[in-house]
């Protein structure tokens, strides 16, 4: 059985369109992109935290995890590190790099990224 190049190209177009549509759908359903869509600045501020605390805050080593914490908990913790109210070796030095507004955005990002994984 043989088919012409023309029908091949048509089929390719169709499959490509499907691929595109499928990809768009999966991007929208993807928890990380959903969180980023709502809070792009929060995402940019938050991505580096994962290097020490694990992807999405899920630590595999001795550094504390914060996966599953609420935005309120994270915001209080970061503000307490920043003010020195809460003891730390290195977190205070990091937290001082962010304004209170930025801390709120970070807390919202990590406080919701896990909820979208449910």
């Amino acid at each position: 059985m043989q088919v012409s190049i023309r029908s091949l190209l048509t089929a390719c177009f169709v499959s490509f369109a499907l691929l595109g549509a499928g990809a768009d759908a999966s991007a929208a359903a993807n928890p990380a992109s959903k969180t980023a869509e709502a809070n792009p600045r929060g995402q940019i501020l938050s991505l580096s935290c994962a290097s020490c605390h694990g992807t999405d805050g899920k630590s595999v080593g001795v550094i504390p995890s914060f996966y599953g914490k609420t935005p309120e908990y994270l915001e209080t913790a970061l503000k307490d590190f920043k003010s020195g109210k809460r003891y730390s070796t290195v977190m205070g030095r990091h937290a001082k790099g962010y304004s209170d507004e930025e801390i709120t955005l970070i807390a919202q990002y990590f406080g919701t990224v896990w909820q979208n994984n449910k």
Partner: peptide
Amino acid sequence: EAMFADGWYKNISQD
């Protein structure tokens, strides 16, 4: 901080 150095490596490489 020595313990965190080890934790740093584990998480950054996993991430």
